[in-house]
Structures are given as structure tokens and as C-alpha cells.
Design a protein around this nucleic acid. Structure first.
Lengths: 230, 230
DNA sequence: GCAAATTAATGATTTATTCAAG
DNA sequence: CTTGAATAAATCATTAATTTGC
């Protein structure tokens, strides 16, 4: 049941920073991230991630995706922790039924005064767009008129491997319209260069049964990847 | 109750393609994507998305994220459609209880012969890594040894806006380790340049109550974004 | 027949869940 | 056991179909 996992893949060609497969945040990095979190940042924008990553890199190697994931996870885990604490609170309320002394953690409350919440007495002045923000999901805040829409935020992203990758005819390589953040990830995909599959055990995995009741029209671009050796 | 939506935003500076905020795929693009899907591709790799996007661009403007999302959505919706069909099947079984004539759509089945499923008689020869693959989630297939892990696949990604964005001191701008795919997305964030918030209604939104029971240590890099106007 | 109003599809985000390394 | 990483599910929002009134 164990699929041979290479004990230590040669990775790519990085100097020798860290052979570990996952990011290991330094104390400082954590502190900064939490600081920003307490400021109210939940899901940083691209620019924000850029900036944060850039700054955090001073304290250890880090990538954009790490920052992104950190906020994701932190948010989620704060929430679930809070949820179960809230549950414990109400549970306690049921057993002893006096007045609720101090409301422990308001479950999905979003209101917060201007006093900073936590031991982090910091006060980051959100210089270049990173800083105080209003959460976009409670209702719709929509502050200024300079924004495009109320909520669109961040996307997913694929990353290409730095292994030999042909230049591709497309143009979105390094345009200023987008920027890359995340490292590569070879999927559980058959990386066969296109030679080993003859015609015996093709096994085209069609997990979802094919049911498209519309376009039986044969289109002229089936094998659009060129290498169509008969 | 209606927030004035501009009848026709000047967009950015694109020729005249489509001022629409979301991609709408051409018939050909859909066909190709479905073709690939029937081939078994569920969550394409970075390279695959790159290639697919490149090819699909011949039939209309498209971005990597569109391809990514398409597969996500298509997969999910095929699944749910199949689920409810399966439910309808069993439901029918309860009312009329004869032998089950043809098993309609096997809910989570993954087996498929080498015969292509659908009207798409195409036979894409997966040239550069895009093509036949084995799904990674049913169990763990792990075909070759050239892959790193069984399942890691693709990441999320923020994208930066092409509006004036300072150069950032970080270095992962266009490294060959990662590549960008997705366009920008201005979050529901207060883009205030850092001048309007005086000290009245700061409202640092700390939705999740701050509870970090670990690092009260004040760190020396709170305002790491430079612009620390007192 | 066309255009405003409604509904259905589906592209795009966010949230929850799961997996696995340290 | 904590937590970074990845995926799937749920949700939101916009565009295309479709209907309905003139």
C-alpha cells in the first residue's frame, strides 16, 4: 500500500537552503503574520502577499504560497477553536445558569473597537495597501468607489516546474498583469512523454460517466498538441 | 438598495474583446476541455494548464485560471449530477421493485475501458505531458517513479494588479521556479493610501477574537512596511 | 418580433475537510 | 500533536437562455 516515495528527491537546484518539503516559519515570521492577522487581515491580496512575503523573507526563506496558506489555516483554525470554545461556554451556561459574566469569545462576531486585540501592541500603518481592512463577508462593506467589486479576492494558481519546460506559445509568462507566487507541483499524473502508451492498456480513466447530450459535432482540433504520431 | 453599477466600465485598455468580467468560453474551447475531461483529466498540472491554455487561446481569449476553474467546476458538477441521478435511480428502485435493468451511472466508479466515452471520438495524444492520466484520489495509483508525491497538485495563488505597484524588494518576480497564471483581483480591501484613517473610527476588524496563547513577546519589526508615520 | 423580467448555467471565491511532515 | 499543504464542497455572482408583455 506504500507507493515508493523517494526518500529525498533531488529537488531542483537550489543552493542548500532547506531540504525540507514544507515551509518552517521562524518565530519572527509567525509574529509578524499574527500581528497582521490581529490587525484584521484575513485573506491578503496579491500585493499584500507580495509585500508580506518580501518582508518576511528577511527572516527566513519563504514563498508567497506560504503566506497565503498561513492566513487560510490560521483563519480556519481560529474559527474552529473559537467555535468549540463558544460551545463550551454555552455548555457551561446550561449547567450553571447565572448571568453570563464575561462573554468569552463571541462566535461569529465581527465588531471590534479600535483597541487592538491581543498581546501584539503593534500598530502597523499599512503602508502600501497592506494593513487595516474590512472583512468582505459579514455583509457588504464596499467602502470607496475606487474598487472594482465588493468581494473578488484571490485565485488559485498552478505553478510550473522549473524542469525543462518548453516555452509554450502563450504569452502570459511574466506579464505585469499577473505574478507568480507558488512553486511547482507535479500531480499524480502520468508524465509519460507520449511513447509508452501504444494501444494495449490505455485505460482512459473516465471516472465520471460521460454524458453530454449536446455536442456530437466532431471538431477539427482533437489532437491539438501536435505530437500526433499515428 | 442598488449600488450604482457603471453601465459600461472603461475596462482597462484591451482592444475591444469583451468587457465582461468573466470568461465565456467558445464552443470550441468547451469541446476541447470536455474532450480532455473525458480523457480522464480531472485536475491538470501546471504544465498541463499552461499547454491547454495556450492551445485554447487560439479559439478565444482565455487565461490559465479559467482552465483551472473549469476543471474544478466540471468535476464537481459532474459529481453532483451523478449523485442525484444515482439517487433517482434508487428512488425508482423503491417504487417499482423489478430487476435493475441498466445500472444508470455508477456513482463513484472509476473504472473505464480503453474505449473513449462520449461523442468525442477524439484521441488526443497527450503530447507534452497533457493527456491520459490516472486519477489520484480514488486510491493511490502512483504509476511511475518520476513523480514526487502521489497527490500534491496545485496551489492557490494571488495575483497582483497591474496598477501602479511598487517594485517590491522581494525576488520572486519571475523566477523559473514558479509562473503566474491568474489575473488580478482587488479585494474588498480598503485601498486607502493611508491618510484618511485618523483615529476616530479605526475599526480594526478582529472578527476572530484574538487568542494566541504563546507569543506576547514584543518583536522589533512591527511596522515593517516602512511608511511608519507616527 | 423585440425588450424587459425570470430562470437556469456556470464561472469565480470562500470555507471546510483531509492529508501528511516535523 | 501541531500545522503547513492540498483538495473538495459550498457559496456567490454574472452571463446566457427562456419566458412574457407589448
Amino acid at each position: 500500500m506504500e507507493e515508493e516515495k523517494p526518500p529525498s528527491p533531488p529537488s531542483s537546484s537550489l543552493p542548500a537552503a532547506s531540504p525540507s518539503s514544507r515551509w518552517n516559519p521562524t518565530k519572527e515570521q509567525i509574529a509578524i503574520l499574527e500581528g497582521l492577522y490581529w490587525q484584521g487581515i484575513r485573506t491578503p491580496t496579491a500585493d499584500q502577499i507580495q509585500h508580506i512575503t518580501g518582508k518576511l523573507r528577511e527572516y527566513g526563506s519563504i514563498e508567497g504560497k506560504n503566506v497565503f496558506y498561513w492566513f487560510q489555516n490560521h483563519k480556519a483554525r481560529q474559527r474552529q477553536k473559537q467555535k468549540q470554545e463558544s460551545f463550551a461556554y454555552f455548555s457551561r451556561l446550561l449547567h450553571r445558569h447565572p448571568p453570563p459574566p464575561p462573554p468569552p469569545p463571541p462566535p461569529p462576531a465581527i465588531s471590534c473597537s479600535n483597541v487592538l486585540c491581543a498581546p501584539f501592541c503593534l500598530r502597523v500603518p499599512q503602508v502600501e495597501g497592506v494593513g487595516l481592512y474590512k472583512p468582505q463577508y459579514p455583509h457588504v462593506y464596499l467602502t470607496g468607489g475606487a474598487m472594482k467589486r465588493p468581494l473578488p479576492e484571490l485565485q488559485r494558481m498552478e505553478m510550473a516546474s522549473n524542469k525543462t519546460l518548453e516555452p509554450i506559445s502563450s504569452t502570459d509568462q511574466c506579464s505585469n498583469e499577473t505574478l507568480q507566487l507558488f512553486p511547482l507541483h507535479p500531480t499524480g499524473i502520468m508524465e509519460k512523454t507520449g511513447s509508452s502508451l501504444s494501444s494495449s492498456s490505455i485505460e482512459t480513466q473516465c471516472n465520471e460517466e460521460g454524458q453530454d447530450e449536446e455536442g456530437c459535432e466532431i471538431l477539427p482540433f482533437f489532437n491539438f498538441f501536435g505530437d500526433n504520431r499515428s
